[in-house]
Design a binder for these strands. Structure first.
Length: 134
DNA sequence: GCCAACGTTGGC
DNA sequence: GCCAACGTTGGC
């Protein structure tokens, strides 16, 4: 099982949109590194859902429900399907993550521009604990 | 709105 | 293959 983090601007597509839609096609990735991460995703993997710009926080966990396939609008790129898995009781903000010594190696801190990032299991567990106020 | 940190493009 | 110019992302 692998863990990921996917960014979305809530103005464009928010966690609530995902909940409303039940599942969605994660499209629009136009960065090779992000695409490689999409291709490495397996069905059942979990991904943090991060709101960039407005919010700047991880708000929940999505599940990969369909592995990568060609972007219907542009065959050169890839998409995956995701569905909501769990909403965080309290969002974990970027400021919280940046303020936690144990999370300084997260791609979110180190390669902030990457829109689809791998997350280590320890990091995943720690952020999850933070969301539960631990 | 500004700017740092990239990624991409194109001239040489 | 290098690098300047430009575009984009995203935090502040």
């Amino acid at each position: 099982m692998n863990y990921w983090l996917m960014k979305s601007e809530p103005d464009v597509y928010s966690w609530d949109d995902l909940v409303r839609d039940k599942k969605t096609v994660w499209e629009g990735v136009r960065n090779y590194q992000a695409r490689n991460n999409l291709k490495a995703m397996k069905k059942g993997d979990l991904a943090f859902f991060y709101h960039s710009n407005e919010g700047k926080a991880i708000v929940g966990i999505a599940k990969i429900v369909k592995e990568f396939y060609p972007d219907p609008t542009d065959n050169e790129w890839s998409v995956v399907d995701i569905a909501p898995e769990k909403k965080f009781k309290t969002p974990v903000t970027l400021a919280q993550i940046k303020g936690d010594k144990r999370l300084q190696d997260m791609a979110l801190v180190r390669v902030s521009r990457l829109s689809v990032q791998p997350v280590k299991k320890e990091e995943f567990d720690m952020v999850l604990a933070l969301s539960e106020g631990k």
